[in-house]
Each structure stands twice: as C-alpha cells, then as structure tokens.
Simulated assay, not measured.
Amino acid sequence: MSMMDEAGGGLTLPELLCRSARRQLGAAAVGLAVMAADATSELVAASDPAAHELEVLQLTLGEGPCLEAFRTGRLVQLAELGTGEQRWPAYSAHLRERGIGAVFAFPLRIGGIRLGALDVYRGHPGTLSDDDLSLALHFVDAAVVVLLHLQDPASHQSLDDPRLEEDVEGFTLHPEVHQATGMVSVQAVVSLHDALLLLRAHAYVADRSIIEVARDVVARRIDFR
C-alpha cells in the first residue's frame, strides 16, 4: 500500500497536511504553494475549495501574504484585516468578502533555498497564541520535508535546519522506529536522517504517532517508494 492510499481517500500528502493543519489550528482554511526563483507559483494543495480560491487569488492578483513570505523569507502576519489594506489592497478586499479576519503566511525554506509558503487563514482577528505558533511551525517542518520528497526523493541533501533535528534518544525503547527508518532510507533513496524526517512528516500529516507509522512500514502496509 502506498503512502497516499494509506493516508486516506486518495488524497496527496500535501492535501492531508493542509486539512490536518486547518483542523488542529482551528483555522478557516490552509493553503500550501511552491514557488520558483522568479516568484511564479504553482498551487500544491489546499484544505478545501475556499482555501484553493484564496490561494489562486494571490497568484492572479500578484499580491498577498504568500508572495511576501516567499520574497522576504519571513513570517507574514496579518492579525487585523484592516492593516493589510495598504500592503495588498485588492487581496484584502477579497479576504473581507470571504469573512477572513486574519492570515498568517509561513515561508518554507531550507537554509537559503526558498520553496514556497504555508498560509493559515482564520475567521476572526487576533494573533496566534504561543501554542498555535509552535504547532504551525511543526506543520511548516512537515511541509518542507514532504515537498522535498515529492519533488525528487533520489537527490535529497542533508537538511541543516535545526528545527528539523530529531531527538533520537526518544526512540530507544521503540526498535520499530529504527527498523522503519532503515527501510524508508532504502525505499526513498535518502539518508537515515532524512528517512526519519519523512516518518515524522507522515505521522504529522496522518495524525498518528511515529511509532504507529513505523509499525506499518515494518509490516509493509506503507511504502515510501
């Protein structure tokens, strides 16, 4: 069984990630996009049709938090919709029409390499709490790994982002994780470090523990090829 089939309903991992992020963050919508160096964009996934529409609007209008997050490499926060009217006048008007009160765009990057952005839309104004910000950053980590794997699993480089480091001591009592990491390394043609990151990303997206995912890999119910 493939990762896509096991994860549910034929949905891709990016789509599942967006849906999981929307649910766990209590968001109105979540969108994920990749971009090229010239800022041309291709929508990868969205949590629902509303999110898809909001993402496409940014690409159509050529303005919005997603494009700004990609360009600057920094988190873009629009906690009060009115504050975005001068930065993105056309896009802000569309957000208001759709009942969006706040939007947060997280850049997806590895070192100096920019990949795209993860957008979180909320139906009410206000900043993200510390807990929600921490959770959102976990989804950013997962999105980076998923995108790298989907783009070219055979040419992964070692990831230098310290936020992606795993405390392997936490798995000393769970040999299934170590065994699954080796299997994923062979299946996806990546290093052991990157294989562990893929296990973590799949666990985040599927709302399961890494031990459960590892056991399915060992039992060959999930295949990372």
Rank of each mutant, 00 (worst) to 15 (best):
G112M: 10
E97T: 12
P107R: 09
A143Y: 04
E97M: 09
I113Q: 14
T127E: 14
H178I: 10
Y121K: 06
L173D: 14
R98V: 02
V103Y: 02
M183I: 15
H138R: 12
I110W: 07
A136V: 01
F139S: 05
L128P: 03
Q151A: 14
H174W: 05
R114M: 13
F171S: 07
D119R: 01
L133C: 01
R98G: 07
G126M: 08
F104K: 08
P107A: 12
E176P: 02
E176V: 06
A102S: 12
F104R: 07
G123I: 10
A143W: 05
D119E: 09
H156K: 06
P153S: 11
L173G: 04
H174S: 08
F106R: 07
P107Y: 06
L148F: 05
P162I: 06
D167G: 03
D160L: 15
S158L: 13
D141Q: 03
A180T: 02
G126C: 13
S155D: 09
L118T: 05
M183N: 06
A143F: 01
D167Q: 07
S129N: 10
R114E: 13
L164S: 03
E97P: 08
A143M: 01
V103H: 00
R98Q: 13
L108M: 11
G182L: 01
G170N: 09
L118Y: 02
P125C: 13
G182I: 08
Q157F: 13
F106S: 09
V177A: 05
S134H: 11
V103R: 03
T172N: 14
L108K: 03
V168R: 05
I113D: 01
D152L: 09
S158R: 14
R98W: 06
L115F: 03
D152G: 11
L164E: 00
E165A: 14
R163A: 00
L135H: 12
D119T: 06
A105E: 00
V103Q: 05
P107L: 13
R163P: 04
V120F: 06
F139W: 05
